[in-house]
Design a protein around this nucleic acid. Structure first.
Lengths: 349, 349
DNA sequence: GTGAAAGCGCTAACAT
DNA sequence: ATGTTAGCGCTTTCAC
């Protein structure tokens, strides 16, 4: 439609006028219901739609119909391969079902998390996926009532939401145990900020597993860093350096590292190489994630793989079901990862 | 508000009723205009808003007010670090201005691109960022009329859109020239699919630069692969193998590789290592992108860095301006990247 | 300074 | 089988 020289999108009324029917019939044709339409009428409407290049206004439809066919997705940081793969997997599946994903990078900042949450709730998303786990599982704003939510981590006690996540503590322990089997006692840990629930759980798994072997797991063996290659690089430099010697109390350098993300482990391997330390001979490394790039570091990472596709499928299936039928009961799924053996742990020398 | 036992979000009318004012006044207060409100009235309204935890319905606001405060962002693949960094940079800036980004991964598939474009246009995004460059710069659907668009690549001749992109051909030539300076003649090329405009331009830059040095750049030295570590890995295996010997006509293995993405180069370096070829002594590598992970490969990549932050800032600034004032004229910005010297090209041995 | 009311484009109940 | 119409929740013009 054109008013003056300004192009304006055609509306349902324009289509109706052109087809010589009422606006309702246009809706019936486009939505294939709820009332039947005669074949001839349907064709006239379809012709008018094509002629005008008409597309229904999704905003108006959402206001009236109730559903926006959109999903809010909160993630810490799409630059981290783990979350990039997770986001992509979730997005692909929702997209196949006709949903659009509204993404927010929270950077694990509580304020940004809350701001995004407000923003997407204001836009009346049909469901929420929270993979950015700072605080939301605890303090749900009132606007969240009634919105299906999947939290992609282990649920806090008594959480009202659905949770689909890894058993981070147990998986971390498995990773550390593997290093122990290779004969390592002095196993350092590089992790993300411990106020992120999953990071805390992984650190705790490292501690517990070390304790169970009467091996050290004190603050001098733990370095917290940004969840990126850069972070892993500087953390490893700190932990392994001959200069600062944070490991001095133990008399020797850690012979192995448990790193809570593939991205950090990539940086840590780089550091080892820079320091002239061979992986795995001088420093063995096991990481957490199982992302694609982890298979192309030198040496390839041994990593505790999380099944991202399974997480995504379970998330999308549950939310689709819950959107269709709000009485669907919540789920609480805890997966176990599996150790993918690369060449960074010492299994193959 | 509660109807029966089902929680329903409070509306502006609820706030008005509680504050003892008309719905219009609530809008005046919340939007800080367009009419003034007495201080006392304002406070009563604000108290009512707080008490009800009222949040304006963004859908209704968009329908009435015209702006959805949302941006459509089409990207090939968020798993590729280059696009992940670009997406994050754009998203962060729009977010700071109060816009929400609707992301679509098109995987460089024309159908998916069109489907996403329709989806976001139906949702009346205020502007579009196209970093997924299959075909859209050519065939713009009518619904795109009037929507500010930035295409993140060089524009096609006569394109109606704004373009902010690299001079891919020239930058590729710069990268190849650098390898030539190191004495390489037989320089292979690993790229993404050539029906992606920027990939075609980079291949063309490689060809031109090789031709200008009377060096070979035939099909036997070019391997097209998926834009990922995996893709680079298999492409390099193909190109460098002693078995297939695609380079047989030249009598020897390529001594250098120009790789059109950091992700592929990461895979290619891995392949070299597996084949027992040293980088850069046996095979020198220069890639294209300048992403963060490129600094943590072993050896770190020499890469033609694109200024992602500049791209993002220019994009967001231009679109914000164009949204505020549609008469803003289109821009056509072509940047030059700069070669970041790592240790994969041979500058440092 | 405040209220009443039109209308954004659509869906669906109700009327014919 | 098709037409008419009431709203979804909001913004903004117009009247007081």
């Amino acid at each position: 439609m054109t008013v003056g020289s300004r192009a304006v999108a055609p509306t349902r009324s324009d289509v109706a006028r052109l087809a010589g029917v009422s606006p309702a019939v246009v809706s019936y044709v486009l939505n294939d219901g709820p009332r039947p339409v005669a074949a001839g009428t349907r064709e006239r409407v379809e012709a008018a739609v094509r002629q005008l290049d008409y597309r229904p206004n999704a905003i108006a439809s959402a206001l009236r119909g109730g559903s926006t066919r959109s999903i809010g997705f909160l993630t810490p940081n799409q630059r981290n391969p783990f979350f990039a793969e997770l986001a992509e997997a979730v997005e692909r599946r929702f997209s196949a079902r006709g949903y659009l994903v509204l993404t927010g990078n929270t950077n694990n900042d509580r304020n940004r998390e809350e701001a995004y949450l407000r923003t997407v709730l204001d836009r009346r998303v049909d469901a929420l996926v929270l993979s950015s786990g700072v605080s939301l599982a605890r303090s749900a704003p009132p606007a969240m009532r009634g919105v299906p939510v999947v939290v992609l981590e282990e649920l806090a006690e008594g959480s009202p939401f659905s949770g689909i996540g890894s058993d981070d503590r147990a998986d971390a322990a498995t990773a550390v145990e593997h290093l122990q089997h290779h004969g390592h006692e002095l196993i350092g840990c590089i992790s993300g900020p411990p106020w992120i629930a999953v990071e805390a759980a992984r650190i705790s798994g490292w501690r517990r597993q070390q304790a169970s072997a009467s091996a050290p797991a004190g603050e001098d063996l733990l370095v917290v860093a940004e969840q990126s290659e850069e972070g892993g690089n500087s953390a490893a430099a700190l932990l392994l350096s001959e200069h600062g010697r944070p490991w001095a109390a133990h008399g020797r350098r850690p012979s192995a590292l448990f790193v809570t993300s593939d991205a950090q482990a990539t940086g840590a391997i780089y550091t080892c190489h820079e320091l002239g330390l061979r992986v795995p001979q001088d420093v063995a490394v096991v990481s957490f994630g199982g992302t694609h790039p982890a298979a192309y570091t030198i040496p390839p990472l041994s990593t505790l793989r999380q099944d991202i596709n399974f997480l995504a499928t379970a998330t999308v299936n549950h939310l689709s079901r819950k959107i269709a039928d709000p009485s669907t009961s919540r789920v609480d799924l805890t997966l176990r990862g599996n150790l993918v053996i690369g060449r960074s742990c010492g299994c193959t020398l």
